[in-house]
Structure formats: C-alpha cells, structure tokens
C-alpha cells in the first residue's frame, strides 16, 4: 500500500490581525495546498475574524479548488463558546473539524474530522468514531510511527488518516493565559498581548535552551516538528493527508517545498534542510521515532 498524500493547512493557532488573516488566505488560495482548516481554535477572546468572515474566506478558497473545513475550539468553558461551536457545527456548508468531543455531540451524526487534540490512541476508538460519522482523523502528535502502522492495519473503511507534519507542536491547554501572565496581566484584562507574538512567545530553560512557546492558553514546542524527510515512510504507511501548521512567515514557501517533494521535483532531505532555515528556532521530530518530542536526532545532520 502506497499513497500519494494530499496537503492540508491547519487552523492558524496564533492571534493575527484581521487584515493579516485575510491577506494570508488570499495568498493561500494560490498555493498547491489541497485542504484548508479555518477558524479560531485556541482563545475565544480573539474574535477579530467573525463567523461571517470565515464563511467568506471558505467560499473563496473553495472557489480556488480547496477542500474547506471549519475548526472548533479546543478548550470550551463558557456558554458563549458553546454557542459559537453550535453555529460552526450547523453551518450547513463546510465539514467540521472537531477539536473537543462536545462538537461530536452537537454534530449529531453529521460527518466530521477530528483534530490533534481529540485522543484517538487505538483501533477501538477509531472504530467507534467511524460509526459516529468520522471521515478523517488526525494522528496524536505524541505517538510514534510504530503505533501508526498498527492503527493503519485496522483502519475502518472510508476513514482517512492525517498526520501533523510541520509546525510548532500543540502540547497543552490551560484555563490560564501564559502570554498575559508574562506581562503581569490577568486573563480577563489581557490587552491581547498574544497579538504581539505571531509565532508564539519562546520560553527557555535557565541555561538558555529554547524549550516551549507560549501562545495564550496554549503551550507549544519551541522547535518545529517536521516530517518531510520521512515522506517515503508516510507514503508506505498509507497516510492520506499531511498537515502543515501556519507560521507567521514563509507558509506559502513551506507548502511549496512539501508539494515539490511530493511531486518528485525536490528531494525530501534537501527540502527538510531548506525548511530548517524557515523555522522560528529549529526542527524536532522525536515523537515520530518514539523518543522525547524535543529530540531531533535524525534531523541533526541537516542543522
């Protein structure tokens, strides 16, 4: 079994201005990405791009030939957040990426995709979600290629597999906003400080080792996960979709490199080396190899 994976662009995880967001998707429409996930998934306070805007962006991307999905929030606490999630689930136009199981209850049998924060760690979970309308699932970022091989062996008919292939890794979610905390501000009066860090705010150990990135209530890896050099294995495993997570700069170029490697115009190892230059800090790929996520053993030679 060998598949030619499609490329997807995950939801923007950071707080970008409305203009930056709209311009970003204008450019994305021109890229060879196949699937685009839209919507705010981290913090409901960042509502500068409204529901209607997302629908319009979606229509434009669909007109450019992209498969469009609307993504739901990951951590839902307030009733207003549930209301927005209900609106997304009932949008009637685009399929939904569920990032919390509350969305599955609202979707009530409509087809859906699960994002990286929905824990699908085994075949029985996958089979159960397939019965509820799962069309595609995103492989949990902390699991290795060995577990994916086992999962692929028992994947239900009609369910596609997506792998988070490029981006700072989403690692944790909290009630507390760490970007506001870095500025000594409470969450309720955060001054939208996360808007000043379009790739997140890097956190280092006391010996200056760069370790994590603070993105509001979300904590990410400081290093950028990159599986481009594993392309042969991803194909052999029958992975259907490779997800690229947007970053503040160079996203189109990153999509281009992935695309050229998929079409054979560029060698994945050379492509991975070029990607290293475009990352905020540098690469990691430990999770894929069953090691600590921060490890970058197989990438070191390209650093």
């Amino acid at each position: 079994m060998s598949t030619q994976p499609k490329l997807s662009l995950g939801p923007i995880l950071y707080f970008w201005s409305r203009d930056k967001t709209l311009e970003f998707y204008e450019r994305i429409a021109q890229t060879p990405v196949d699937i685009v996930y839209l919507g705010e998934v981290v913090c409901s306070k960042r509502a500068v791009v409204r529901f209607g805007d997302w629908m319009e962006i979606g229509e434009r991307l669909a007109a450019a030939g992209k498969e469009v999905l609307l993504s739901t929030m990951t951590l839902l606490e307030a009733e207003s957040e549930l209301k927005m999630m209900r609106r997304i689930c009932e949008n009637g136009r685009f399929m939904v990426e569920a990032n919390d199981l509350g969305a599955l209850h609202m979707l009530d049998g409509r087809p859906f995709v699960t994002g990286p924060s929905v824990n699908v760690y085994n075949q029985r979970t996958l089979a159960r979600l397939a019965k509820l309308g799962l069309r595609r699932w995103t492989y949990p970022v902390e699991l290795s290629h060995d577990t994916l091989a086992d999962m692929q062996d028992e994947r239900p008919e009609g369910v596609e597999t997506e792998v988070f292939a490029y981006g700072r890794l989403p690692l944790a979610y909290s009630a507390r906003c760490f970007t506001a905390r870095a500025h000594n501000l409470p969450k309720d009066d955060c001054d939208y400080k996360c808007g000043e860090y379009p790739d997140g705010l890097t956190l280092s150990a006391q010996d200056q080792t760069r370790f994590l990135a603070l993105n509001g209530i979300q904590t990410q890896s400081a290093h950028t996960f990159n599986l481009l050099s594993e392309l042969d294995e991803l194909r052999a495993l029958g992975v259907d979709v490779l997800r690229i997570s947007p970053q503040a700069e160079h996203t189109e170029e990153i999509i281009g490199i992935f695309h050229r490697c998929l079409t054979g115009e560029e060698n994945p190892r050379d492509g991975a080396a070029r990607l290293n230059e475009l990352m905020p800090i540098g690469p990691c790929d430990g999770y894929w190899h069953g090691k600590p996520g921060i490890d970058a053993g197989t990438l070191d030679q390209y650093r």
Partner: peptide, 17 residues
C-alpha cells in the same frame, strides 16, 4: 494547570506522558 488528558509536556521532555 493544564487540561488533563491533553497535556503532552512530560512526553515532550521525556518521551512518556
């Protein structure tokens, strides 16, 4: 401090969560 079941900080540093 993090939502339980969705915190991968430990495995990011150690491989185990």
């Amino acid at each position: 401090v993090m939502v339980e079941g969705r915190c991968l900080l430990s495995s990011y540093a150690t491989g185990d969560s």
